[in-house]
Design a binder for these strands. Structure first.
Lengths: 187, 187
DNA sequence: TCTCAAAACTAACAATTGTTAGTTAGTTTT
DNA sequence: AAAACTAACTAACAATTGTTAGTTTTGAGA
């Protein structure tokens, strides 16, 4: 991956976050790069390829991160904590790309099936973690689908939140988020 | 609002949910309506107007719902429960429109400022609820911004989840979601 | 049956879309 | 110095976009 292509992807991530993939034109991206739209094609194959590169590299990060957590020999509570940390870490590193992952995956076309495989695998691992925790009495006996949906909804929305907070606020995010998501908020 | 216009909006909501506002063309909507694109303009003013009608009517539902909750004389815990129920109820009635509210609000143009006012007001009311609960010792002493962000992220994602569940599963959703969001999941 | 408005149609528009072809200037390799 | 490569450019393309103008069809009430 050439330096210039990485720059195009980085600029595209920002634009895709602002307006969504479909509303961003190659001329928008070119303007941001300080070149003409046609020149982009010296570095990339298509607009589609930009989106695929953004989304699939993130999806693969989540998949491999989750697999590492699953095979570790920690308690379920610790593993859930690690999942939270995984999302925070990836989102800190790629806040803009996370917008595409969350809202523009349906435009992946050829790569859509592969993305859905990764996503389903990730969610299955997550659900198994929760189910195992319930059997263990480590996790309260609530509908595991609701638990996964709820936690994952929050973690997937982090990209909207993290860029607005300064480093001081983010220092405690792991701790605060774990409290809210795992221990609840009722005193 | 004429019947035909409501049909256009309903079809548009479905298409907007599938591909996002920018990727849906007037010809897509017309095909779904069984007419030609130009005929749509006998009933609506512009593509923009469809999006505005979808989003603003929902945003106003949330705003008035929240205001009713705020002025009630219930405990904070009960009010938080009511906010959860409000989201479930509105999302059950308009699962497709909620997609536009969540992902296409940035394309509102002329109506964008008004939408942002409503959204900010809603979030401020929510935050005040949580802060008041902390002062009351009804709510655990966690960063209120994290609490609001977390709960709201889950509630905003309900539109992705509710349409996939049958009525039996949804019967307990209020209860399950309150457990997870308010009491946490750690046994 | 006639009237008239509502609601569909056809045809077209200017603008914008992603992308390709061919060219050129500058740099690197031979 | 010649050759090859890189990365920009201009010009253009066919397709698609939201929308308008003008015309025809439809159906209910007189």
């Amino acid at each position: 991956m050439s330096v210039r292509k990485l720059e195009i992807i980085k600029k595209s991530e920002i634009l895709f976050k602002e307006k969504g993939y479909s509303a961003v034109t190659m001329r928008d991206i070119a303007l941001e790069m300080g070149m003409k739209a046609a020149s982009l094609y010296n570095h990339i194959k298509s607009k589609q390829e930009i989106l695929s590169d953004i989304i699939l590299s993130l999806a693969e990060d989540f998949t491999s991160g989750m697999e590492a957590i699953v095979i570790s020999d920690k308690t379920t509570a610790e593993k859930l904590q690690d999942v939270i940390s995984l999302h925070i870490q990836i989102t800190k590193n790629h806040p803009n790309g996370m917008a595409s992952l969350n809202t523009d995956w349906m435009h992946l076309e050829e790569k859509l099936d592969y993305y859905l495989e990764l996503r389903d695998g990730y969610e299955q691992n997550f659900r198994q973690l929760v189910i195992h925790g319930i059997q263990n009495n480590e996790v309260a006996d609530v509908n595991p689908e609701v638990v996964v949906f709820s936690i994952l909804s929050t973690l997937r929305s982090l990209y909207l939140w993290i860029p607005k907070k300064d480093d001081e606020n983010l220092k405690n995010l792991d701790v605060d988020l774990s409290k809210v998501l795992l221990q609840g908020i009722i005193a």
